[in-house]
């Protein structure tokens, strides 16, 4: 079956007054129908930038995007603005970390959902309101009919997040892009939203790309994961395999440094020394080498390209790929 999303050699560069930032370098991945991919990484690794490229949400004049982003076979990067706005919200939809930013504070939640449906499906206001009600019900907002006329600020954090999911899913998109949608939520609310997203995905048969920095969240929602570091995917594969037997030293380090239950409290945490590099130049060698205990001189010369079509791969040249 053809993948729903195919990203090929994506490069995103931000041009600024004080030089360029090479935010995403040579990122390739694909996504099958009904599948969830977690883009896992720390702040500044390029995971959110990659996600926004799928809808071309970057400011045009400051951003240089190269490569191919195919959604259902159509290249998003070459789309005319009309086709683009048709695609946004209908084929591909997005939920953000901060729901307050997704809603306009002066309109009711119901009207905003209805407006989106009317724009994409050209149906009457009455039918669109009906759909909005269905959606609020579906994301399990209690007394949905009443909440239809609520303003965003009248809702609690968790409920706003649900409402945003309702907005994103109102036109039954093929792909949902989720940018850390549960990071700002409290633990007991986060799990509600995660489980809800998983369930809705199954019901609607959507594909989902889930950006997160939380290993636990990735394990909970994703089928496959792509670990990003310094603007590149450094390891990709099934979530189970990658996060139980990581190949790349960075993934190993990240998992080791993440505090989890049952750790020996009398031992120091296995932290990764140093900090990620600044992306002020295009890094073709291994960007993790300066922090890596296994690094050799070979890591400091440009790395060979990897076959990204195999189910599991890593960019590390020292990785022992025999143990899967």
């Amino acid at each position: 079956m053809n993948p729903v999303v195919e990203v090929k050699n994506l490069n995103v560069t931000f041009k600024g007054e004080e030089g360029s930032i090479f935010a995403v370098n040579d990122v390739s991945f694909d996504l099958a129908a009904g599948e969830t991919l977690a883009l896992l990484g720390e702040s500044g690794c390029g995971k959110s930038v990659t996600l926004k490229s799928l809808m071309r949400l970057h400011p045009m004049h400051k951003t240089q995007i190269e490569g191919q982003v195919l959604v259902e076979g159509q290249d998003v990067l070459k789309m005319k603005s009309k086709a683009l706005s048709e695609m946004r919200g209908k084929t591909v939809s997005m939920v953000f970390q901060e729901p307050m930013l997704a809603f306009d504070p002066v309109f009711t939640v119901g009207d905003q959902i209805a407006e989106s449906v009317m724009r994409h499906e050209r149906i009457s206001y009455k039918d669109a309101r009906q759909r909005a009600l269905e959606m609020l019900d579906r994301v399990r907002i209690p007394s949905a009919a009443k909440r239809l006329d609520a303003y965003p600020h009248e809702m609690s954090g968790g409920m706003r997040q649900r409402a945003m999911i309702a907005l994103a899913l109102a036109c039954k998109p093929r792909v949902l892009l989720a940018d850390e949608p549960t990071t700002a939520l409290d633990a007991t609310v986060q799990i509600q939203v995660l489980l809800l997203l998983k369930e809705l995905q199954r019901e609607l048969g959507m594909s989902m790309i889930f950006v997160t920095h939380d290993v636990g969240v990735a394990i909970e929602v994703a089928d496959r994961t792509a670990v990003m570091y310094a603007g590149r995917i450094i390891e990709q594969g099934p979530v189970q395999a990658v996060l139980s037997k990581p190949w790349h030293p960075y993934t190993q380090g990240l998992l080791g440094a993440t505090v989890h239950p049952g750790m020996d409290r009398n031992q120091a945490l296995p932290a990764i020394p140093g900090a990620p590099p600044q992306l002020i130049r295009r890094i073709d060698e291994c960007a993790f080498a300066p922090r890596c205990a296994q690094a050799s001189s070979r890591c400091l010369s440009p790395l060979p390209s990897v076959n990204t079509l195999t189910p599991r791969w890593t960019r590390c040249i020292h990785a022992d790929v025999s143990q899967a």
Binding site: T188, L194, D214, E220
Partner: peptide, 27 residues
């Protein structure tokens, strides 16, 4: 109990039965 239970597992392969609380912490 609910709070401790709501933390996603950090190791793959252990599917968890979550105690899911309803709603947000009240005001």
């Amino acid at each position: 109990r609910a709070l401790l239970n709501s933390v996603p597992a950090q190791t793959p392969g252990q599917s968890k039965n979550y105690i899911v609380l309803e709603g947000d912490p009240p005001n």
